[in-house]
């Protein structure tokens, strides 16, 4: 979704507190990534607040053509962030939904519209936040490692997270980032697309996997849980031993190894 391709964002100073919006995918399928995201932030002396009433940004319904259902779900999230703290989201596509589509979803609502807009301004994708706000430093650890990164399309195009993730990885001394062939191409997830058009989705996923495997990198990471469900599910079905890891888990592992 071509909302903010050339957005130049200015970033706040490092805060004492943040909200963590864990996303519905990580909640059930990769809670380690969510905990790692919290740990990374806390490790930089930021208090992490995880509102227990959070559920989902509403994106699944929104992209399927059910704006009312999306609104109903999103409306419940709007009241969870009462303090003026940044809201950190370990997923570029959910962050994009909250930052760019919530304001649209509520634009005709006099009460929730301004609230959605003010929340949108405080939403940060995790790697973006670590890079520009936390400005974390990454000590040298162990042996050199080749890493291949897959970035979700909405994350890339709405949030520019391929750049922040790459910049973060570039700061880690012993990480060598390699780019797969057709790096910018979609992995075929696309939410309901993956089950509505399974043949196309599967063809995209298998091409993506072949490109990733061809890099020879032993480690594959992504900042998006959705893509990882798709890619890891496909890898396992193909009998491959490679698995993608959420970038939060990867970074937290690295921080622990260094300590």
């Amino acid at each position: 979704m071509s909302v903010a391709l050339n957005e130049v964002r200015s970033y706040p100073a490092k805060p004492g507190d943040v909200y963590l919006f864990g996303t519905c995918v990580l909640d059930l399928f990769d809670p380690d990534a969510g905990v790692s995201a919290a740990s990374l932030l806390e490790n930089s002396n930021i208090s992490v607040h995880y509102p227990q009433d959070q559920t989902c940004c509403g994106q699944p319904a929104y992209t399927s053509g059910f704006p009312d259902a999306a609104r109903q779900v999103a409306a419940r999230q709007l009241h969870l962030f009462a303090e003026n703290w940044p809201i950190v989201v370990p997923s570029g596509s959910c962050a994009g939904m909250m930052r760019h589509h919530w304001p649209r979803l509520f634009e005709d609502d006099p009460a929730l519209g301004p609230l959605a807009a003010s929340i949108a301004a405080r939403v940060f994708e995790l790697t973006e936040f670590l890079l520009h706000v936390v400005k974390a430093t990454w000590p040298q650890t162990g042996a050199n490692e080749r890493v291949v990164l897959h970035t979700s399309c909405t994350a890339r195009r709405e949030m520019g997270t391929h750049l922040s993730a790459r910049a973060l990885l570039a700061q880690i001394p012993n990480v060598e980032l390699v780019l797969q062939d057709h790096e910018t191409e979609c992995c075929g997830f696309g939410g309901a697309f993956s089950v509505k058009h399974p043949e196309i989705s599967a063809a995209m996923a298998s091409d993506k996997i072949e490109a990733i495997e061809a890099t020879g990198a032993a480690t594959m990471i992504s900042a998006d849980g959705g893509c990882l469900l798709n890619l890891n599910g496909t890898l396992e079905k193909r009998g491959s031993t490679l698995r993608g890891q959420h970038i939060a888990s990867y970074l937290w592992q690295h921080a622990k190894d260094a300590a």
Binding site: L28, P31, G34, N43, S47, Y50, K237
Partner: peptide
Amino acid sequence: GAWTRSRVPLRPAGHSLHERMKSRNGAKVK
């Protein structure tokens, strides 16, 4: 359904992020 035609089934983790964050709320790593 269509998901498992080319992927293994989705299987939730043992504990949700909600649960894990609740049990560690406020805790810092350092």
